[in-house]
């Protein structure tokens, strides 16, 4: 049933300028689930990136064997692990790494995936065939092996890079080493995890490119880049956003696998993925080691999903009255 939109032009004041993103923000603000997710994410990020600078938080690496596997107390809010390290502190420090890994690798994979998928879908023909066969080949390669190879190769360069950053900024090497040592990992995962998104984007772009407004844009003599990135890709934003919110948590967990194999974060540093893995191993002796990191991880994942759904709706002008 078609519901005709009546527009009473005469007695309405002229409206202020609107843009897709400005409108999306307004709509997002009215979405309670998305704003809730946003707030929880903000709290987690603040906790992870600010609290560790305060001295009251114990050193995440400080061991105290007499104190091992302690329950929550005033001095250790979430108890201690099997080496007597403060769990709360380890979660917050690990969160920094997990969040960075999730965001940066997802950004890398989105940038590559959206570009490749959009170009393949729009150009069609030989370009499409070439790009998509490349994707097929990459699919067939063992992902893990490639990442390990890649980060092993990059290790030497990373050390140079760390020294360069230290010499440039004078920051304590220990403070940034856990982050810079992750750079090859970011790039390796990001560069290989774009395959799915490129296929999804290609399919949507093909569908959108056949619509008449694209033909109208062509008949205005617009350049291909402008047609692709102004007229086509914004209309494919729904699946991209949803996929991105799914990629962040899966990358966070993948980092744990790599760390376990010695490629990612190295002890005494930690991440949520590592904490959850360790916690699962010691679930029977001290369940707190699994429960507390998992709560942080699950809250992040849920909030991301709510935010992702909200963003997808907000970016669709049709989804809400304005």
């Amino acid at each position: 049933m078609e519901n005709s939109t009546t527009i009473q032009a005469a007695n309405e004041p002229a409206e202020a300028g609107r843009s897709l993103w400005g409108d999306a923000w307004i709509r997002l603000r009215h979405n309670r689930a998305a704003m809730g997710g946003c707030a929880i994410l903000a709290i987690i990020v603040l906790l992870c990136f600010i609290i560790p600078f305060f001295p009251f938080l114990p050193d995440p690496a400080a061991q105290s064997l007499p104190n091992k596997n302690a329950g929550p107390s005033m001095s250790h809010w979430m108890g201690t692990d099997h080496l007597g390290r403060d769990l709360f502190s380890r979660i917050l420090h690990g969160g920094r790494i997990s969040i960075l890994v999730g965001l940066i690798t997802t950004l890398v994979s989105l940038t590559i995936g959206v570009s490749v998928g959009a170009i393949a879908g729009y150009a069609g023909g030989r370009v499409d065939a070439l790009l998509m066969r490349t994707v097929d080949v990459l699919y067939s390669l063992p992902f893990l092996v490639i990442v390990i190879l890649f980060s092993a190769l990059a290790k030497g360069y990373t050390n140079d890079f760390t020294e360069w950053v230290v010499s440039l900024t004078g920051i304590n090497q220990d403070a940034i080493a856990p982050f810079t040592s992750l750079i090859p990992l970011f790039i390796a995962i990001g560069a290989l995890s774009w395959l799915n998104i490129s296929r999804i984007v290609r399919a949507s772009v093909q569908d959108i490119a056949s619509r008449e407004f694209v033909e109208a844009a062509r008949s205005l003599g617009l350049s291909h880049g402008r047609i692709l990135f102004r007229h086509i890709v914004p209309n494919a934003i729904g699946p991209i956003v949803v996929y991105a919110t799914l990629t962040i948590p899966s990358v966070m967990l993948f980092e744990a696998t790599l760390s376990f194999l010695g490629m990612g974060v190295q002890p005494p540093y930690s991440s949520w993925g590592i904490l959850i893995k360790d916690g699962a191993d010691r679930m029977l002796s001290n369940s707190a080691l699994l429960v507390f990191p998992s709560i942080f991880f699950i809250l992040t994942l849920l909030s991301l999903n709510f935010l992702g759904d909200g963003l997808r709706d907000a970016l669709d002008p049709k989804s809400a009255k304005s």
């Binding site: 407004f213 033909e215 003599g221 970016l315």
Partner: peptide, 29 residues
């Protein structure tokens, strides 16, 4: 460049306007 000399009005007004652009953006462009 010559495409500008030919403009088209399509059959389906639901498919021929970019749903993510305001009327101002579409006409301004």
């Amino acid at each position: 460049h010559h495409r500008l000399d030919f403009q088209m009005v399509f059959q389906d007004p639901y498919a021929s306007l970019n749903p993510r652009l305001t009327i101002f953006s579409t006409l301004g462009e």
